[in-house]
Design a binder for these strands. Structure first.
Length: 263
DNA sequence: AATATTGTTCAGCA
DNA sequence: GTGCTGAACAATAT
């Protein structure tokens, strides 16, 4: 479920398993997932190098390799696996690198909606992708957030889903924020009070912190999280109201019709 | 068999 | 220029 917390967990996993090991082999198993880079270029840049650092902006994971960054985006179904035998590779592995200890780091992505790419300029890359600031960036302060909202219009949901404003939130976590802040996802950005925005900021930060600490494992999330109730006609764990499903920007959106207002 | 699915991008329209 | 909608991408699960 690769939104910000998931990718943050992938990043930590990669750091723990795959840094500073010599890469002896690279295979791309889905050429159509490559961004601007060719398969031969990618292989050449990784060969005999090792991963030395990681960075994450929103849902993008960057892995430093000599003077380049391997770029991984996970689409809706991507994840990483570090494993010993080739047989242990996940289904739908689209890329793997093999280290000199015989282990492999595999990138699996069932629906091939992710991206495999390479860049030598991280800032230029995020700029080209029009990524806004990541909420875990130290500069993403309450003041920065309040300023970001100024002049914006449209529904809360659209605003939070737009990666050029806030990088990393997606369908699931946007809904979760509204659920805990008692806001209707269709409420207009320009109609929310400053007090309420401060509450949104605090909830956003708390939800990201909580879910990352839970290693983005949904079963470990608090019982009163909406994510456990993403089905129409469920009962709200906070107030006993009814969970409703609607479409916003053609994405399924869940909310409690009683404590999140009726818009 | 029809419908749904965590993301991104783009065309068309208001 | 801004914002909304639906479609497309691909491969499953229910």
């Amino acid at each position: 479920m690769p939104e910000l917390p998931d990718v943050e967990v992938f990043k930590k996993y990669l750091r723990k398993t795959s840094l500073n090991k010599k890469i002896v082999k690279t295979e791309v198993l889905a050429n159509d997932m490559l961004g601007g880079i060719s398969e031969t270029q990618l292989k050449r840049r990784l060969k005999n190098q090792s991963f030395s650092d990681t960075h994450r902006v929103g849902k993008y994971l960057f892995v430093k390799c000599a003077n380049n960054w391997l770029v991984l985006h996970f689409g809706m179904t991507g994840f990483l696996s570090y494993h010993r035998s080739p047989e242990a590779a996940p289904r739908f592995t689209r890329l793997f690198v093999e280290f000199d200890n015989g282990f492999r780091l595999s990138y699996s992505c069932m629906r091939k909606l992710g991206i495999i790419d390479l860049t030598d300029d991280l800032d230029a890359y995020t700029k080209k992708k029009e990524l806004g600031k990541d909420p875990l960036d130290k500069d993403f302060t309450e003041g920065y957030f309040l300023n970001l909202i100024k002049g914006k219009r449209g529904s809360l949901k659209s605003f939070f889903m737009n990666q050029k404003y806030i990088a990393g939130l997606g369908n699931i976590y946007a809904d979760e924020i509204f659920f805990h802040t008692n806001l209707h996802p269709k409420d207009k950005v320009e109609k929310v009070s400053e007090e309420k925005w401060k509450e949104v900021y605090k909830n956003m930060m708390r939800i990201l912190d909580t879910t990352i600490k839970a290693k983005a494992e949904i079963e470990k999330y608090p019982k009163d999280y909406l994510i456990h109730y993403r089905k129409a006609d469920e009962t709200c764990p906070k107030c006993g109201g009814r969970i409703r499903q609607i479409k916003i920007n053609s994405r399924s959106t869940y909310f409690c019709e009683s404590h999140q207002g009726s818009n």
